[in-house]
Design a protein around this nucleic acid. Structure first.
Lengths: 182, 182
DNA sequence: TTGCTAAACGGAGACTGTCTCCGTATGGTT
DNA sequence: AACCATACGGAGACAGTCTCCGTTTAGCAA
């Protein structure tokens, strides 16, 4: 990639990161291009679709997901605490941008989605937590990781759209956790 | 209301009902006006916002909600069957239009929403089912009806956005039901 | 019936966001 | 220094939202 192309690419991603955080995923792409100091053509050449741009913005976020799962797994406490700790972190992770929960949860299991690699990372991280609980025989075995992701993602989506805070989300996560634990 | 105004109002609502069912809530309003054989100005005079139009389309749907709750309450079977029967009907009810689950669940608890009366009807219907289960001491009492609506609405939202069918939704509803029952 | 007027109509067009095309500019190489 | 593949960027086509205002009409009163 040519040096000027690389520079513009980075500028666009940085502008997009700000914009998504402050105005949500449905903000104007032309405005992001303007913020980045490039023409709309340049933005669309680098990122054919909005999802491709979202995918790029999420690049660094992925590392954070792994770390978070690691941290949760070192937690003391029983299976219920472990599961709830992961659920709360999961909700936080997918809610960094407005519209994020719907976007990410909707793409779960969609092989065609531009952000599928991000979903896979999330699923893998969640899978590690669920595996641990399986080993302890603490969780029912007829529910798949993707179903768990959808359950928790659904709660996060509603919370995002209704502007609920973590305290309001907690009891709903508890219901799902209690329904999953044996 | 003048006769021609009434006629156009009805035409617009009917065109919108078709359009929402076939193309989802985000379909073009100017197109709906065209389908109804009126100008865009006429549509926007009757319905200042998209939500106002959605609200009007839902008018007849409300009666259906009441009926459905009645029917579910006559069901034979244990508390778990009752709860799951209601959950499945609830998902079906709010999923008649694409985008409906997100719209309705997002408006839950929002006093300002143009469709709040519809949400109240849904909550009241769900409340009757939950009251029955309370009387039987079959359900935990620290979860409010609106939280239940959000839990099930979250699942319906994800299902709508991921194109899941009833069979895929069922196990997720079971998890929530099991988490709620004592 | 006729005439009047408040009510309603409807379409042109302003505005915003998406996305493309193509003439122009430039980084990197020989 | 010259070349050219690569990249830029903005004008503009297109689509959807929503408003303004000149025109039409329903309903009523004489």
């Amino acid at each position: 990639m040519r040096a000027d192309a690389q520079r513009n690419y980075d500028r666009i991603v940085e502008a997009a990161r700000m914009a998504f955080r402050e105005r949500g995923y449905d903000t104007s792409l032309d405005q992001i291009a303007k913020d980045a100091g490039v023409g709309p053509g340049t933005l669309y050449r680098h990122f054919a679709t909005r999802d491709d741009l979202i995918d790029a913005v999420m690049k660094s976020w992925v590392d954070h997901v792994e770390e978070t799962a690691d941290k949760v797994l070192t937690h003391e406490g029983g299976p219920r605490d472990l599961l709830l700790a992961w659920f709360e972190e999961y909700v936080r992770l997918i809610s960094v941008h407005k519209g994020g929960p719907a976007k990410i949860t909707g793409a779960m299991g969609d092989e065609q989605s531009p952000i599928r690699t991000k979903c896979q990372v999330l699923q893998a991280a969640g899978g590690r937590v669920l595996d641990r609980l399986h080993d302890e025989d603490a969780i029912r075995d007829d529910v798949t990781p993707i179903q768990v992701a959808r359950l928790v993602g659904g709660i996060a989506t509603v919370a995002d759209q209704s502007g609920l805070d973590a305290a309001a989300v907690r009891p709903m996560l508890e219901v799902v956790a209690d329904g999953l634990l044996t």
